[in-house]
Design a protein around this nucleic acid. Sequence first.
DNA 1: GGTTGACCTTCCCGTAACAGGAACCTTTAT
DNA 2: ATAAAGGTTCCTGTTACGGGAAGGTCAACC
Lengths: 131, 131
Amino acid sequence: MNIGAAATRTGLPAKTIRYYEDIGLVTPERASNGYRSYSDSDCHKLAFVGRARAHGFSVEDCRTLLALYEDQSRASADVKRLAQQHLTEIEAKISDLQQMHATLSRLVQSCAGDDRPDCPILSDFAKGGRG
Amino acid sequence: MNIGAAATRTGLPAKTIRYYEDIGLVTPERASNGYRSYSDSDCHKLAFVGRARAHGFSVEDCRTLLALYEDQSRASADVKRLAQQHLTEIEAKISDLQQMHATLSRLVQSCAGDDRPDCPILSDFAKGGRG
DNA sequence: GGTTGACCTTCCCGTAACAGGAACCTTTAT
DNA sequence: ATAAAGGTTCCTGTTACGGGAAGGTCAACC
């Protein structure tokens, strides 16, 4: 399978697939003409990575997950630990964003939003008030 | 005020302050020895940017906000619109993260997390199932 | 056989917002 | 004189690719 077909199958852009080869994540064979040749197994790995990425895992985490996936003697505890850490990071991000949203939302609501210059948003940024 | 003092006052790292000069966001005078010399007004701008950044605005948004702040004839509507767009982006990110969290959370809960290899998390990534 | 057009290759730059560190200068204190 | 604590510029690295140039390959069509 050429890279285009692999891209179609996995839903990943060809650029991304080449990048994954660059960093040694999924390394295909080469045909005699130099084209990358993806096996079903390669595609499977690419799709695996694509789904892990969709769950927010970093590419390096994906490398670990892929290694665990291929290691028949893995302990599910190792996978769970990684996923749990990732969940914690997600929670932290959500919390940060919610905090930002709450504060900014209040500011936006208090802003008239008309053609006058008075603006509580700018005032807050200027003075650091917390109202 | 040298950059160190400005950094202490604004809570921004010196590296960040130099970067803001590089991109023309806050440009200080120079002393005869070549050192950057920050006025109170410069510090005020830096602090303004720091707070806007803390609310999640991009540096380019900060540039716009700073320009609006300095424009006495601004319309608060322009500020409000920008903030509202930013709020919408924040909401989208929160939503994405919550989606990830929900899915991954379910997977983590269904994983035994012991020394056996069976792992619903890996199975999901391998097969794309949605349980 | 020639020529399109779609596909592939490598390589290099750009992204956002800085952090780290090297090599070097200035100021202040001892 | 020297050492410490500041400052300066400049270059590299970060994350995960996207865009695009310059050129090779392949299948089809006239």
